[in-house]
Deep mutational scan, measured.
Amino acid sequence: IEKFKLLAEKVEEIVAKNARAEIDYSDAPDEFRDPLMDTLMTDPVRLPSGTVMDRSIILRHLLNSPTDPFNRQMLTESMLEPVPELKEQIQAWMREKQSSDH
Rank of each mutant, 00 (worst) to 15 (best):
P44L: 00
S100T: 06
P69R: 00
D27V: 05
F4L: 14
D30G: 09
D68V: 00
I23M: 13
R95S: 12
E13V: 05
D30E: 09
M37L: 15
G50C: 03
E31D: 12
T67P: 00
P66A: 13
M41T: 00
K10N: 13
E96G: 11
P84R: 08
M41I: 07
T76A: 06
E22V: 11
M37K: 02
A28D: 07
F70L: 01
P66H: 08
I58S: 02
K87T: 09
K5Q: 07
K3N: 13
T76P: 03
G50R: 07
A92P: 02
E12G: 07
L86R: 06
K17T: 13
F32S: 00
R60W: 02
M74R: 11
A16V: 09
Q73L: 11
E96Q: 08
D30A: 07
D54G: 03
K97T: 13
D101Y: 06
D38A: 05
M53L: 15
E96A: 11
I23V: 09
K10Q: 12
K97I: 13
R72S: 02
D27E: 12
D24H: 07
R95G: 11
P69H: 00
E85V: 13
I58V: 04
P35L: 05
Q98L: 10
Q73R: 05
H102R: 12
F4Y: 09
E88A: 13
S65T: 04
S26T: 13
G50V: 01
K17M: 15
D54H: 03
K5T: 07
Q91K: 09
I57F: 13
T39S: 06
M94L: 14
H61Q: 02
I14L: 14
T39P: 01
N18K: 07
P44A: 01
F4I: 11
P48H: 02
N18I: 09
T51A: 08
M74T: 11
D38N: 04
Q73H: 03
M79I: 04
Q98P: 12
K3T: 07
L36R: 01
V45M: 03
Q89P: 03
T42S: 11
L59Q: 09
P29A: 04
M41L: 05
N64T: 04
L59P: 01
V15L: 11
L63F: 00
P48L: 01
E96V: 11
D38Y: 15
N64D: 04
V11L: 08
S65Y: 05
P66R: 08
G50D: 03
H102Y: 10
H102D: 15
Y25S: 14
V45L: 02
S49T: 09
M53V: 15
S99R: 08
T51I: 14
M79R: 05
R55C: 02
